[in-house]
Design a protein around this nucleic acid. Sequence first.
DNA 1: CTGTCTTTA
Length: 647
Amino acid sequence: MSSLQFWKPGTVGPGSTLDRATEAEGSVISSAPIGAAVSIQAARERLPIFKHKEKLLYCVENYGVTILVGQTGCGKTTQLPQYLHEAGWAADGNVIACTQPRRVAATSVAARVATETLLDPLLSRYSVVMIDEAHERSVYTDLMLGVLKKIRRKRPSLRVIVSSATLDAAGFLDYFSSGNPPGEATIVSLEGRMYPVHIAHLEQPTPDYVAKAIDVVWNINLQRSSGDVLVFLTGREEIDRCLEGLAELLPTLPRGATRLKLHALHSGLPMDEQLAAFEPAERGFRKVIVSTNIAEASVTIEGIKYVVDSGFVKIRTYNPTTSLSSLSTIPVSRASAIQRAGRAGRTSYGACYRLYPASTFESLPPTTQPEITRTDLTTPILQLKSLGIDDLMKFEWVSSPPAEAVLRALESLVASGMVGEDGRLTVIGEKVAECPVEVNIARMLFASKDYQCGEEILTIAAMTTVQDVFVIPDGAAGALAELERRKFTAEEGDHLTLLNAYNAFTRYGRSSSWCKAHALSFRALSRAVSIRAQLKKYMQRFGLPIENCQGDAKRLRQCIVSGYWRNGAKWMADGTYRSVRGNVVLHVHPNSVLFTRKPRSGWVIFHEMEETKKTQIRILTEIEPDWLLEYGHKFHDKRTGVGVSVR
DNA sequence: CTGTCTTTA
């Protein structure tokens, strides 16, 4: 996700996590803005970008698009906007904007730009728009680049700055040059602030990179000078296995050898455990952090001297034909492998041990497939339409998504009434485009007026948006957690169970200790509270009443169906389900309260499905089959000729 | 029999 972040020129700009980590003291994990340390003149002039100031300003003056290649930590994010401000780009009421991944997110951009654009399609208030970390290629940086290219055709005075990693710069140059006169775009390179990193590869491929990682970490500790170790694996299960393996070796550590402090790092951990990985190790200890991709770009850990890279990553892909998303483990790109290695060279020279042969590195794809080519496009296309881009055939994608994905997204927008047969946004489509949630949730919120259950639907919307509400510890604690969870269980299914958990959380003081005692995630619930508050504002803005359902769970379930009627499924005697659309075999996620129970009616609706080894459905609620027909008859799939039928 | 990442003026 990416966004426009607006700030007053002359104040400290929004640094990226990466830039900030070198410019601020200590560890940085959150995306909270730092203080004003960087405004000290001497510190500013020490940054590598300072030497390039004149050149940069020359390029912005003379080229429409400046592609800025700079290593993380060179100061581009914090300094460039100030240079532009000093050079007068913010004079006469002009605005310099900067967008970033992992910041205020995208709908707000679309919505904000949309509100202005509908009145001011050429963004004439903006003199310069900077897209930061563009090489990460999030859906919204890609959309913004496309929109900016279009705007520049109509208003050449707009300046665009695209900050990028080395490998991707030529691609951005081609993109902005194509179809434009010469001199449209240029590349500026800034020197980084990196120390050399020695790269080592295995001679032979390994059949078990977790075992190999344990081996390599152990040998680094015995044979290499002091400095912390960062290991890249793909997920929680691997991380736990690696840490267990290392823990088993600890008693064999020779007398006098450096001792090890072991840490896991992945997004599923409670915040205090995540923060622990950022604490410096005690004297006489070497810190080993075994991490997912979270440490590749999202957070920076100081003091890493050794990186161990499995060469794999988990990535989400989406199949528009089956509407199935899946999480698969694939080899990383060369760009990722280089980025991971770079984590060893931030404070001194370092070393990276790749758990695969050099020949494998050469055969890796140069970059990761951009997210826009492997995601559900329903929301992105709704947002493009809200920006007035109705003719998607003419939109210049940085990377084109599959035609099938565009088509399916349009179909689903038409089916849900967001887009009319003429291809333009409907009245409700315009409103939903402003809502920071997926279309199905927004439909549910709008329908709550008819079912008089806005208060509860708001909570359900927020709770289905956050993840991992119920904590599942291993072993005996897991069984205990299961007992705790039963206290919230609703007969009707997971949506109401989530509602119960939320209500209990707010009733009992929103405390972290209460969550711990009831096997709930404090982080997830706190997030749900804040999302709910935001959604409530949207409902009030659209004049939707926030009524209590007075304990009528049937109304609530019918309202959920209004958003999710395409996700109906029928129970089978073997405990699996069949999807109403497509008759696909579905397995209930083990986290569901309906995992071991047959729904009385034999029918459910589900929030989402995902392909793992099997096709799994998550967040289920029991429904009556005729509730599906009520919505289903309005929708007939033109491609397959299959409507929603309930047999 | 189970969570890569991110997450909306």
